[in-house]
Design a protein around this nucleic acid. Structure first.
Length: 317
DNA sequence: GCGTCCAGGTCTACC
DNA sequence: GGTAGACCTGGACGC
């Protein structure tokens, strides 16, 4: 049964704002679920709000300098005004429409690595997940696996334990709920999703979230150090994963990105990427300060263009 | 074909 | 407060 439209609203953003680059990243990252549909500057996607799935149609009606996004919300029943406010707030926050990039661009214009990157990706916001458990699920599947294998784990999770909704003539698959995973036996999870040792971790995270953990809005209200502490208390979530879940705050280097930034900073590949991470993080901190998280996302979404300019293929890693 | 290596990290056990 | 070693699994690679 198709969900029906329950309300819609328009969002304005601080310019420059590129809707397309924000929700449909050049490197292939999605806004909410890998199964969402992006066509003609419109995104059909889904999220979960207070345990219930909602369909979202986000449509760009504006321009880079006069951005405007129309957002239609679909659900199987009417919703209260309080819920509407909550949903609207969450979508705005995840679209990062209130974020002012001008200070970042000011700094980037004086930086050899970023100067051209910010021209290529002008108006792009970093990631901003609209739902907590999927962000944690993503972080877990990214650990210690090549991208292809991570994609396989995510697809199997969504296929076997996720949900599917139809609205506005489209069907979108969405991540499993924490309740669904918490109800699963670890053997079944392992067998159906190829998560390997990560299955125990995901199960533990799901259980912790169902018995009591701050929701997204509560985390957003907390100081960053407190958010980090809470997330680190989850089994299988370390520093790297925290920076995946709370994008734009740190510099989530892994073996793959360490190779890329080592080439950009020092002109050659590191002998041992894992050992180079500490030094690279410090270099990024000294060079880009509080904007290092933005620099991270911008660079990794512009690898083909950077490669052409420097004459080194950074997409091969 | 078959064996080996290691990946878009984290935890534990030990110092 | 710092650091080896183990950890599922499957693609990539060498032979």
């Amino acid at each position: 049964m198709a969900l029906k439209k329950v309300y819609s609203f328009d969002i304005e953003a601080i310019p420059p704002y590129s809707f397309e680059l924000t929700v449909h990243k050049p490197a292939g990252w999605w806004w909410s679920t890998p199964e969402e549909i992006f066509e003609d500057n419109t995104l059909w996607t889904a999220t979960r709000f207070r345990g219930k799935l909602i369909g979202l149609k986000l449509e760009s009606l504006g321009t880079l300098m006069e951005p405007k996004i129309r957002c239609a919300v679909f659900r199987d029943e009417e919703i209260s005004d309080a819920e509407k406010n909550g949903i609207t707030f969450r979508i705005k926050r995840a679209l990062r429409t209130e974020e002012d990039l001008n200070e970042f661009y000011e700094m980037a214009r004086r930086d050899d690595v970023l100067r051209d990157v910010i021209k290529d990706l002008r108006g792009m916001r970093t990631l901003g997940w609209p739902d907590l458990f999927p962000a944690l699920t993503l972080a877990v599947t990214l650990q210690m696996a090549p991208m292809k294998r991570s994609r396989q784990m995510m697809e199997l999770l969504i296929e076997n334990f996720g949900d599917k909704i139809s609205f506005d003539g489209k069907t979108v698959s969405y991540w499993p709920s924490q309740e669904r995973i918490a109800d699963t036996l670890v053997e079944e999870l392992k067998a159906k999703t190829k998560l390997g040792y990560r299955a125990e971790n995901l199960l533990s995270i799901a259980k912790t979230l169902t018995v009591g953990f701050p929701i997204l809005e509560e985390l957003w209200e907390m100081p960053h150090e407190e958010v980090k502490k809470r997330l680190l208390s989850l089994r299988g979530i370390g520093n790297y994963s925290v920076e995946i879940v709370v994008p734009g705050t740190g510099f989530p280097l892994d073996v793959w990105s360490a190779k890329i930034f080592h080439v950009l900073f020092f002109g050659k590949e590191p002998g041992s990427p894992r050992e180079a991470i500490k030094e690279l993080k410090k270099t990024a901190q000294d060079r880009w300060g509080k904007w290092r998280g933005h620099a991270f996302v911008y660079v990794l979404n512009d690898l083909p263009e950077i490669s052409k300019r420097i004459g080194v293929d950074l997409t091969r890693f």
